[in-house]
Amino acid sequence: MWEKKPILLMLMATAAILVGTIVTMVLPFVWVNTEADRIEGVTPYTPLEQEGRDIYMREGCNNCHTQTVRPLVAEVVRYGDYSKSGEFVYDRPFLWGSKRTGPDLARLGGKYPDAWHFQHMENPSSIYPKTNMPAYGWLSNNALKPDKIRRKVEVLGFPFTEEQIAELATKNEMDAIIAYMQKLGNDIPWRQTARTEIVGELRNPFAGADQTTLAAWKPLYQSNCSACHGANMEGGIGPELVGEYYDEETLFRLIYDGIPELGMPAYANLGTERVWQLVNLIKYDQAMGN
């Protein structure tokens, strides 16, 4: 009968479409972004951060970078604590993405110092020589428009001060996008809670390694350390590395746990063996500065 009655067919089709829609799309509004989802410490974006987020959207960064860490072992080890619903309540729209041509950015905030980001955006291959990330140094040439940004945070209902708006006049788009990236995933103290405790005695398994052995570990240094500490440990974004300044155990802890407050990332995910190799390289390699 419905094959002869178009209005009836369309009503039936609408009903068929709406069942799944209501259950899986409308109904979740009851549970998502509610008080139960709330996480203390998650704050709205400042005007500068929100503008950075809008630049991130304008440039389509989401086409290559995701912003959600899944509760899977390799993923948590690589990026950090898995993402929680309450962390995204101020995101309009969400920017979780669907493809990782580049790495996930959900836990990027606070991982590197601002100087690292400036250098990386200006010249990505200076940090990752074979990267396909395009350069975004040109963002530094674009001034921000305080009045437009004020209107944005007003519409979003985010709190702001006149000082914050006035300050925007002195900033450019690069400052904004870096401010945004430094906030990502950093509202919850996951680095402190995820920090591993080193138990037992630390013993250098490679004590007495000769210079040839040390030289073989250089690629490890180059792919993880040289971007900030220089090709020959002469320093750059991070300080010069002088082996004599540290004992083996201190150096191991600094690399393994990082120094979050100074922008030195933790390298626990390299594993103890490779961290020890770096310790020996930094302390005892004679070709590289020592």
């Binding site: 899986t24 799309m25 979740p28 509004f29 998502v32 972004n33 989802d37 619903s85 962390e87 995204f88 309540v89 101020y90 995101d91 309009r92 729209p93 969400f94 979780w96």
Partner: peptide
């Protein structure tokens, strides 16, 4: 008008 997880869904 949708935020975060709702926006994704």
């Amino acid at each position: 008008i949708f935020a975060g997880t709702n926006s994704a869904n």
